[in-house]
Simulated scan of single mutants.
Amino acid sequence: FSTTQAKRLFGMIAGGASLGGLTGPGLGALLVAPVGHVGLLMLAALLLAASAGAGVWLYRWRDRNPLPAGAQPEEESRHVPLGGNPFEGAAEVARTPFLIGIAVFVVLLASVSTFLYFEQARLVAEHFPDPTRQTQVFGLIDTVVQGLAILTQIFLTGRIAQRLGIGVLLVAVPVVIAAGFLWLALAPTFAVFVVIMVARRAGEYALVRPGREMLYTVVPPQQKFKAKNFIDTVVYRGGDAVSGWVKRALDLLGELPGLAMFIGAGIALTWAGTGFLLGRAQRRREADPEAPARRS
């Protein structure tokens, strides 16, 4: 997709994941009794096969509908593999400031998510010692998150991207989460945490993730298909692991229970600043499609 198409469509496309996340657990709960776990596994296999078929159809659709000249940073061959070695994605990130910015954004995202995940585990264990009750609470939270995400993806994400720009998608959620961390530091209750967690997850699915994917519409194929994989796997999981160690170390300072929340607020504000800079860089690249190819 071109950047213009991405702004219009990526929110709606992301709604498919949220719709699956909302209906999948419902189907499991509804069908486990009549068809059993073996039947559910067969259904899952059929759904995966249907997904693969949809992917094949999409590749054919892409070949029948090429982008107009100038709509992408660099002319890409549809059928010739890029080649190279497995480490080129890391090299592309290391030598491209725009990709370094995306990598930093992903690390900060993973850090915020990990901080909230550990806090969730602590608060749920304190308030709901019964495992069955914990499952019910998580199910309710997930249902609310997916419902809000779908509504936002269908009705707001595309309009925000088209009218206000990708930067707004990348900044809005981090700012809200920074305020949420401060709120949680001052009022560490389960109700406050639920509000923050719902805002973070729904916002990430509906705004941050589509916005992050839109950033790659203005980079050459070498970066789009290699650097992106490196960032989405090695960088994301590495940030997840390191932030988990940091959060655990802060938890050991039992006399300062709010310290982790204040640090989380600082991380979220840095995350917002990185999103703002990425949105501005994306606009420059969109205005001059040849610039990324020249810099590469």
Rank of each mutant, 00 (worst) to 15 (best):
Ser2Met: 05
Ser2Asp: 03
Ala14Phe: 13
Ala14His: 07
Gly20Thr: 05
Gly21Phe: 07
Leu22His: 01
Gly26Ser: 06
Leu27Lys: 01
Ala29Trp: 00
Leu30His: 11
Leu30Asp: 03
Gly39Phe: 10
Leu40Glu: 07
Ala45Glu: 06
Leu48Met: 14
Ala52Tyr: 13
Gly53Cys: 06
Ala54Cys: 15
Gly55Leu: 15
Leu58Gly: 09
Arg62Ala: 13
Asp63Ser: 10
Arg64Asp: 11
Asn65Ala: 06
Pro66Arg: 03
Gly70Met: 10
Ala71Ile: 04
Glu74Lys: 13
Ser77Met: 06
Ser77Arg: 12
Arg78Val: 01
Val80Asn: 02
Leu82Cys: 09
Gly84Tyr: 11
Gly84Trp: 08
Asn85Ala: 11
Pro86Trp: 14
Phe87Pro: 00
Ala90Met: 14
Val93His: 07
Val93Asp: 05
Arg95Tyr: 03
Thr96Asp: 14
Phe98Arg: 01
Phe98Asn: 03
Val106Leu: 11
Thr114Arg: 10
Thr114Glu: 08
Tyr117Glu: 15
Glu119Cys: 02
Gln136Met: 13
Val137Ser: 01
Phe138Asn: 14
Leu140Ile: 05
Gln153Phe: 04
Gly158Pro: 08
Gly158Ile: 01
Ile160Met: 12
Ala161Met: 10
Leu164Val: 01
Gly167Lys: 07
Val168Lys: 08
Leu170Asn: 05
Pro174Lys: 06
Pro174Asp: 07
Gly180Pro: 00
Ala185Glu: 08
Ala187Met: 05
Phe190Asp: 02
Phe190Ser: 00
Phe190Pro: 04
Val192Asp: 07
Ile196Leu: 14
Met197Cys: 01
Met197Arg: 05
Arg200Val: 00
Ala202Asn: 07
Gly203Trp: 00
Leu207Asp: 01
Arg212Pro: 03
Met214Ala: 15
Tyr216His: 03
Pro221Leu: 11
Gln223Pro: 03
Gln223Ser: 12
Lys224Trp: 04
Lys226Asp: 05
Lys228Thr: 04
Val234Gly: 05
Tyr236Thr: 06
Asp240Cys: 01
Val242His: 06
Arg248Thr: 10
Asp251Lys: 03
Gly254Phe: 04
Met261Trp: 13
Ile263Gly: 07
Gly264Val: 03
Ile267Pro: 02
Leu269Ser: 10
Thr270Gly: 15
Trp271Gln: 01
Gly273Thr: 07
Arg283His: 10
Glu286Tyr: 05
Ala287Asp: 13
Pro289Val: 14
Glu290Lys: 09
Glu290Leu: 10
Arg294His: 14
Arg295Lys: 13
